[in-house]
Write a protein that binds this DNA or RNA. Structure first.
Lengths: 353, 353
DNA sequence: TTGTAGGCGTTATCAC
DNA sequence: GTGATAACGCCTACAA
């Protein structure tokens, strides 16, 4: 433990390639190659260089490297909001992998604002990120900008949704399957009138795909889809509650609800309670996310389609990293399968409906 | 809108200082000065340079700047876990300010692991961050390393706790006051037997300070502190529940509980319910954090000592930024006052106790 | 397999 | 006030 820890900057600057080269009586280029493990060289020399570098406490100067090599070892990540209840898992997955590969992660928040989206993308470009991971974004302008990115050598991967199938790489969840297994589960419990709480925008990504799964399950079980059961709803607890109460007020008849996220599911359950209905005795509810946070805070434990965001984050980093290393811009899509987590909010239908 | 957006890298590289200088027939140095707003120069020329730069779509090359100036415009932030239910707010506060000041933020997660803490600090140093914000950390080794940082021109600010009073800058919450107002509130509701659910470690920061506030309130209301009421407890829902049930099993008598965080409070309430007690009819509960997430998911709405993490984040960035700009290493501490948010988990004592 | 040389884009230090 | 010039530390050709 005689290494010089701490340092590279300040008055007592750390050693540079030159210092190591001088110490060893070799050239800077050789040291550089040894350190990066590129080119062919005698293992003995490489070993010697590595040891000496470490002993002298050598630390790469990323600024110099970036300046010269035009690679920043910076990865940009764009998310809607940092304080979203699930985003931490995704970011941890990304960061873990990034760290292993000596990448730093820059995070930008969009806040559901189109101008902000453009500014953030531009800001990532300005900072010379090697790659960009974008999670739920999706304005046409933003998408266009993202598509242009590869002209600037920035590798872009869409995370959670497959933003531009065949034109941009992505790591996403099989939403159709998610919609299907949730609905199937309810059918197996003998439910036939299932509300679908989707997004609030037109043609919302998760909404539309899961709805296809929802419909497919209906087909398979020989039940006609009632279009009135497809309800617009925001992604918050309060929205879930409000919308559910509204359904009751409108006289919709149902014995189960499938919601777009766990927060909405929690809200729906609150609404049901407010209306004097019990879950799952009177109505079954299935959420989407499988959030640990929700499951530890909310009673009863939700039945939910669960996606492991940490893994999605890891896969996303690996994918963009592979793209960067291989300098390949061929779109590549990874689709992960969600799983049904059965909690205490679904049960065999007992109501007459 | 004829500017060249997108660019700095890739084949079609963006313009450099040199290009602007050439276009304007001035020297690179002058352009550089104009852009940074340093040194004295004729306003007319500065104006001309600024306009031309923007028209040509000039973008700073941070790598080059960092290499030459020994300032990276990078800020490191160390947190225990990214997926903590409150951390997003803190990070958003930091990022917002950082963005305004052209700083990028690097986030490292410690995961309650001492070696990891050291590695992360070292990693931030390696990346030449100009400053470091550390939120709840606290191993002696880590602290020592942080104290050494300023020898390397890295400005360090402790966030949420005042890690080394008088020796390191900090932005924190008046924990004593927090403990006081929570307890005072309960006294005002006529409670006299108040459990204090603290941390699980010896000499835990939040625990000890809030306990002082708790004791002070007892003094003022002329009630003796019962040391048995100080209970060790982790920061999770499950811990809160387990510990509360344990208290009941041990025959402790109380009419109120003050917990170290909202998660614990939620857990304690679950435990009370499991024991057949109602909140707030039988027992009042006060949490700490004022988390929106908890309040939207958990019923009933918690009474809680609330701290605005977003503001703390903003203040923390401003402080470290000021330190960086002024090159001052004098420790400076900012203390913010928490506020009591009164929800539906506290009520006038009705129980005989 | 290894060395030499030049420059990436910027800023700091002098001059003028 | 403004300009010339020399680094900053590294990587990439190309030469040996």
């Amino acid at each position: 433990m005689t290494q010089k820890f701490i340092s590279p900057r300040g008055s007592g600057r750390g050693p540079t390639l030159k210092d190591i080269a001088k110490t060893l009586g070799v050239s800077r280029a050789t040291v550089s190659r040894a350190l990066r493990g590129v080119g062919r060289m005698s293992p003995a020399l490489r070993e010697r260089i590595l040891r000496t570098s470490s002993e002298m406490g050598y630390k790469v100067n990323y600024a110099a490297r970036a300046l010269r090599s035009r690679r920043s070892n910076l990865l940009g990540v764009l998310v809607q909001e940092h304080s979203h209840y699930q985003i931490g898992d995704l970011l941890e997955g990304i960061q873990d992998e990034a760290q292993k590969n000596d990448y730093s992660v820059l995070i930008g928040t969009i806040r559901h604002d189109e101008d902000m989206e453009i500014r953030q993308i531009q800001s990532m470009i300005d900072k010379h990120v090697d790659g960009l991971l974008v999670s739920p974004t999706g304005t046409p302008r933003g998408l266009q900008l993202l598509m242009d990115l590869q002209r600037d050598n920035i590798h872009c991967v869409s995370v959670l949704e497959d933003l531009a199938p065949g034109r941009m790489s992505s790591v996403s969840v099989d939403e159709l399957l998610g919609g299907f297994i949730a609905t199937q589960h309810l059918f197996e419990l003998n439910h036939r009138h299932i509300l679908f709480f989707g997004g609030y925008l037109e043609d919302e990504y998760f909404d539309s795909r899961r709805y296809v799964g929802y419909c497919r399950a209906h087909d398979i079980y020989g039940v006609a889809v009632n279009p009135d059961y497809r309800i617009k709803c925001g992604y918050t607890v309060e929205e879930g509650r409000r919308v559910l109460l509204d359904c009751i007020a409108r006289g919709l008849e149902f014995s189960a609800v499938f919601t777009i996220c766990d927060m909405t599911a929690a809200g729906a359950i609150k609404g049901l309670r407010d209306a004097g209905l019990r879950v799952p005795e009177h109505v079954s509810v299935v959420g989407f996310d499988g959030s640990n946070l929700v499951s530890s805070l909310f009673d009863p434990e939700l039945t939910s389609v669960s996606q492991t965001l940490r893994i999605i984050g890891q896969e996303a980093f690996r994918l963009v990293h592979r793209k960067i290393e291989s300098k390949s811009y061929d779109p590549e899509s990874i689709v992960l399968s969600p799983q049904l987590h059965i909690g205490k909010t679904t049960a065999l239908r007992k109501s007459p409906l």
